[in-house]
């Protein structure tokens, strides 16, 4: 059992990760080897990680949510605008932003579950609407304000036991989702729907309800990521959200090939996020060209999925 757990098939990404660390350590011992680098990787990964985790529940239930980039953009802009243009306190601003995220999730859920539009198309459409909303709110301008620096900045900058807060948020969200997916009846039903909706339906699982809430979950976590991101960069930017979409999907898909072989899962996703994060940091520290990180992500994705595809064909 233990042997199987540590096999390359099960946690191949961990071995690849170690190889990458050793490689860059050897290549750039001065910069890559410093503890600052570790902290950068950990912190940068935290927000990508949150975004990636937002996708785990819907994907496990077989639902694509392409609108999370838009959700990040909207919540970021809402938070920044509220703090810059009004005098409400940061806590209220955060709550309003999270409430907006829930509302976005509700719209997605209505489009996909009630209107029965394929999630891929439905959330592509809402994603476009959210892009428009960001432009309306921001007038295509970044929002900066001293109020984005003070107390609000602290929520992403305070450290607990030397770890910055976003890493902690990531850990908490991961723990909750892990428990939900691995240790509750709901989690079992989520996977059942994702693997075979018809069987799940005939087994008496309330398919619509779970698909509905899965989209609310993704929007909420993406909203949380949007707020934390805004706090970290202390600016509300209209172009902030969409770039997260592809890396997040890449991480979840790579993650699905790890630990639980074929199931979208939390731990695999975290490993994938930090594998990709480490590679990207190493590449930029060693002065590789700007396009190198994207090549790296692409290759990791193809090889992870390709290898598990091969494995399945052998069965």
């Amino acid at each position: 059992m233990n042997k199987q757990r540590l096999s390359f098939n099960n946690i191949g990404a961990v071995y690849v990760w170690l190889l990458i660390i050793i490689f860059f350590w050897w290549l750039e011992p001065g910069t890559f080897g410093s503890s600052d680098t570790l902290r950068v990787i950990l912190n940068d990964g935290a927000i990508t990680g949150l975004v990636a985790l937002s996708l785990v529940v819907p994907l496990a239930a077989g639902v694509f949510d392409l609108s999370i980039g838009g959700t990040i953009g909207v919540t970021s802009m809402v938070t920044a605008k509220l703090l810059a243009d009004t005098s409400i306190n940061p806590t209220t601003a955060i709550f309003v932003a999270l409430f907006v995220a829930l509302a976005i999730g509700l719209v997605n859920a209505i489009v996909v579950v009630i209107c029965k539009i394929d999630p891929f198309i439905g959330t592509l459409a809402t994603s476009s609407l959210l892009g428009a909303l960001v432009l309306i709110v921001s007038d295509n301008k970044s929002v900066a304000s001293p109020r984005l620096l003070g107390g609000f900045a602290r929520i992403s900058r305070i450290k607990i036991w030397g770890i910055t807060a976003p890493v902690l948020y990531l850990f908490v969200v991961a723990l909750i989702l892990w428990f939900l997916l691995e240790h509750t009846a709901t989690g079992r039903r989520i996977y059942a729907i994702g693997f075979n909706r018809e069987t799940a339906r005939l087994s008496g699982v309330n398919v619509d309800r779970i698909r509905f809430y899965s989209l609310i979950t993704s929007a909420f976590i993406a909203g949380l990521a949007g707020v934390v991101l805004t706090s970290r960069i202390s600016v509300g930017s209209p172009t902030i959200g969409p770039p997260f979409l592809l890396p997040a999907f890449a991480a979840v898909f790579v993650g699905a090939t790890q630990i639980r072989g074929g199931r979208f899962n939390v731990l695999g996703t975290l490993i994938a996020v930090y594998l990709i994060g480490t590679g990207n940091t190493g590449l930029s520290l060693s002065g590789q060209p700007l396009w190198a990180p994207q090549v790296f992500v692409g290759l990791i994705l193809i090889s992870a999925i390709g290898l598990t595809g091969l494995k399945r064909r052998n069965v």
């Binding site: 693997f195 075979n196 005939l202 008496g204």
Partner: peptide, 18 residues
């Protein structure tokens, strides 16, 4: 396509009904 979930093991399939 309707009875079982191929990706689940025996236990997960048997208990899915309730």
């Amino acid at each position: 396509s309707q009875g079982a979930i191929s990706e689940f093991n025996v236990r997960e399939n048997m208990t899915l009904g309730d």
